[in-house]
């Protein structure tokens, strides 16, 4: 991308976001500009494309979600890496919308949080294409931390017993 176009693009995105929200409201939706999908759709897509999954459990009102969106995910390097490397899944951890799991079981998004022991929000999971957990991280994530976790997963370091997970915090 032409570097000179980037500020204009961000300005346009910011304007769109501002216009779409009531004044004074802080949302914690998935960060803008990312292609997040539902959990059940994401599992199917990951199986098909054999790509790892990045799952973001968020909550409306959640301060650390808001900060991670506006600082962590706003970083262009993070956006490029995560958009390219993962099937991106967002779960509204307070939603009663139903998901259909690969087993056929239908549970709400909130029940999924209960089963994955999400504790609070935000919680981030890196999963293998078959849904097995690679890494779990709690709380605010700055760009450096997000990139560190990406490297850890992409380089397959989780398969090495002598390499501790960067999420141990």
């Amino acid at each position: 991308m032409d570097n000179s176009a980037a500020p204009k693009l961000w300005l346009a995105l910011a304007c769109c976001l501002a216009l779409s929200l009531p004044f004074g409201v802080s949302h914690a939706e998935p960060p803008p500009g990312y292609q997040f999908v539902r959990y059940d759709d994401g599992l199917r897509l990951a199986q098909k494309e054999q790509r790892p999954i990045f799952v973001y459990f968020g909550r409306y009102g959640c301060g650390y979600c808001d900060k991670t969106n506006k600082v962590g995910f706003a970083d262009p390097q993070v956006k490029a890496a995560y958009s390219q490397h993962y099937v991106l899944v967002y779960v509204n951890s307070e939603s009663m919308d139903r998901l259909t799991l690969p087993t056929g079981e239908r549970i709400t998004e909130m029940q999924l949080g209960e089963r994955m022991n999400t504790l609070g929000t935000p919680v981030f999971f890196f999963l293998q294409p078959d849904g097995k957990q690679i890494l779990k991280a709690y709380g605010y994530q700055d760009p450096a931390k997000l990139l560190e976790m990406d490297h850890y997963v992409q380089e397959g370091q989780y398969a090495r017993a002598d390499n501790p997970s960067p999420s141990a915090q």
Partner: peptide, 14 residues
């Protein structure tokens, strides 16, 4: 509400 910069505060559900 613990932060005036980030988020909108606690929630009540279910």
């Amino acid at each position: 509400k613990k932060s005036y910069e980030w988020g909108s505060g606690s929630s009540a559900v279910r």
